[in-house]
């Protein structure tokens, strides 16, 4: 087990080295290679080169869901229509800001739909305009970017350290990191092995890797 774990450590360092050049969408490796036309890929294509076909695909996947969320919360067709318009406009406009550090595409789209919906509801109920959704939920999933900034500077960490850090991860995150980095499985395979939804796997992986980075960061 020992050497297997240190193997994981060195692979992890490989991925950490990549994230030092900030904003690289590839900081959680593999995703872009092993899922064809995943929501993440579509979103990144929209962000990187205004890919309209990719945007059409996202639109057809999410617009009905957004409309349904609007109907559930406002019971008003016009407002739900506006919500689709505003949420998908935000997807288009902010796509260049999306990267895999911000979580799955569906979670990113969910949060910005939730935020637009909050603002629409507030107007509908004529509540005071003191705080908007963007004050309450700082920047659509921008929370993890702080981890990226902490990584500035050089990092030299012994592999044995990573082993001990790895042991400190909560069991669910450790299981995911193990599937991906030790058993070298794709996200889909790992999700199937662990019998958890793909989105959950991705978020646990991101949190696990994020925590490892934090531990590495505080150790240096």
């Amino acid at each position: 087990m020992e050497d297997v774990v240190s193997g994981a450590g060195s692979m992890l360092m490989g991925s950490l080295a990549k994230t030092k050049s900030v904003k690289q969408p590839a900081s959680v490796p593999r995703v872009s290679n092993d899922v064809s036309d995943s929501d993440e890929q579509l979103l990144i294509a929209v962000g990187n080169h205004q890919d309209r076909a990719a945007f059409n695909a996202l639109f057809s996947r999410f617009s009905n869901k957004i409309y349904a969320m609007g109907m559930k919360l406002t019971r008003n067709e016009q407002l739900s229509h506006d919500l689709v318009q505003e949420a998908m406009l935000t997807v288009w406009q902010k796509a260049p800001l999306y990267d895999l550090d911000r979580g799955t595409a569906q979670s990113w789209i969910f949060t910005l739909t939730r935020n637009r919906c909050f603002d629409i509801l507030r107007k509908m109920k004529r509540q005071p305009a003191t705080v908007s959704a963007d004050d309450i939920w700082p920047q659509e999933g921008d929370i993890d970017s702080q981890l990226v900034h902490e990584e500035a500077g050089t990092m030299e960490v012994e592999v044995s350290k990573i082993e001990s850090f790895y042991g400190q991860l909560p069991a669910p995150q450790r299981a995911v990191v193990e599937q991906i980095y030790i058993h070298d499985r794709t996200h889909e395979e790992a999700a199937a092995v662990l019998e958890i939804p793909l989105g959950t796997l991705k978020s646990r992986l991101r949190l696990g890797v994020g925590k490892l980075r934090q531990m590495v960061g505080t150790e240096v």
């Binding site: 617009s63 009905n64 869901k65 409309y67 349904a68 969320m69 109907m71 559930k72 067709e77 739900s80 229509h81 689709v84 979580g103 799955t104 569906q106 979670s107 789209i109 969910f110 949060t111 939730r114 999933g141 929370i143 993890d144 939804p197 989105g199 959950t200 991705k202 978020s203 646990r204 991101r206 949190l207």
Partner: peptide
């Protein structure tokens, strides 16, 4: 929160019917 947002988005996609808005 970021775990809960992932979970909420799963639930949203899973449980919402694909109501197509005729008006759109």
């Amino acid at each position: 929160i970021s775990e809960l947002e992932e979970a909420a988005s799963e639930e949203w996609l899973r449980s919402t019917p694909d109501t197509r808005a005729s008006s759109i």
